[in-house]
């Protein structure tokens, strides 16, 4: 009989940390979502309320806000993901070519991804500033507008403005993933296609793209997860305002839990989010384990 007890010792530290920081909180959240805990940060004296918290959220007092926020979350996630992906793809394709200074260019393009989300959020807040912002300033100088645009206090503009800032921060991630993916395209194939007289577009579509399929899948999944979870950009730039126009799930959960101290409703909210994540997680693991698939991670 092979004894595996020693093997577990190696992963024990990782497991303990993950248990404390992940497993218990998940259990705690799911449990709390079925209870009424009153208003204090004490969780020993709970009253079972079944699905009440969910009802409150989906059809009750919170429902209008919830569905509105869900809509925002969809817009935020879809546009951020698509924007970051396509910009990252374009970037990967152009910085993949040989040219002098390529290393520097790649480095520069990666910086936004590396800097802190808080710093990035303040930078963009300053760029969008309604009085002294660079963007309004440039547009005025070019004669395109005659009054400064109020990006972050306008219910129609706030979401696009946030998404642009978010894409700025995230496209380098897509770029670096796709660059790694591009390394797996056999050069011979590209040459062969060139000899056959294929145009650049054809070569991309018929030679390069098929090799990027799995890395694309994973990148898009990871971007989606990242955007669904991204808190800091929105929280710092607008905190969900004005009038909830930029409120997304995670900031809303924070607000309900910590500003309104409704931890039970926030827990139900979180559990719904878990559900969405579980579905994405399923596809993620499947993408990772598919035979030829590209391996990578969060």
């Amino acid at each position: 009989m092979v004894n595996h007890r020693g093997d577990y010792l190696y992963i024990l530290p990782a497991l303990v940390v993950m248990m404390v920081v992940i497993a218990y909180p998940i259990y705690f959240t799911i449990r709390l979502s079925f209870f009424d805990h009153g208003r204090a940060l004490q969780f020993d004296d709970l009253e079972w309320v079944g699905l009440d918290n969910y009802r409150l959220l989906l059809t009750g007092a919170y429902s209008r806000e919830f569905w509105n926020v869900t809509q925002n979350t969809l817009v935020w996630t879809v546009f951020s993901t698509a924007g970051a992906f396509f910009l990252g793809l374009g970037a990967a394709l152009v910085v993949q070519r040989e040219f002098i200074g390529r290393g520097i260019v790649r480095g520069i393009l990666l910086i936004p991804w590396v800097i802190s989300a808080v710093a990035a959020a303040y930078i963009w807040r300053w760029l969008y500033h309604s009085d002294y912002g660079l963007i309004s300033g440039i547009l005025t100088d070019l004669g395109l507008i005659d009054r400064n645009i109020i990006f972050l206090d306008d219910v129609d503009l706030v979401m696009p403005a946030l998404i642009v800032a978010n894409i700025w921060k995230e496209f380098p991630f897509a770029m670096i993933m796709l660059l790694a993916g591009l390394q797996t395209v056999p050069e011979g194939l590209n040459r062969a296609a060139m000899v056959d007289g294929a145009s650049t577009w054809h070569r991309f579509w018929h030679v390069t793209a098929p090799h990027l399929k799995s890395v694309t899948l994973i990148t898009v999944l990871l971007l989606t997860v990242q955007n669904l979870n991204s808190f800091t950009t929105v929280f710092i730039m607008t905190a969900g305002g004005p009038a909830n126009a930029s409120q997304i799930w995670v900031t809303d959960i924070y607000r309900i839990a910590f500003n309104r101290t409704n931890f039970d409703v926030a827990s139900a909210y979180s559990v719904i989010l878990f559900g969405v994540m579980a579905v994405l997680g399923y596809f993620y693991v499947r993408a990772l384990t598919r035979g030829d698939s590209t391996r990578s991670t969060v």
């Binding site: 404390v20 920081v21 992940i22 909180p25 705690f28 959240t29 997860v225 910590f258 994540m277 969060v298």
Partner: peptide
């Protein structure tokens, strides 16, 4: 175990905030 380690980052930080605070 391996995949359960991997999916960790699928969960938004916000939802762990309060339980982790309790922990």
């Amino acid at each position: 175990l391996f995949y359960s380690v991997l999916v960790r980052n699928m969960f938004p930080a916000v939802v762990f905030l309060m339980p982790l605070f309790v922990v």
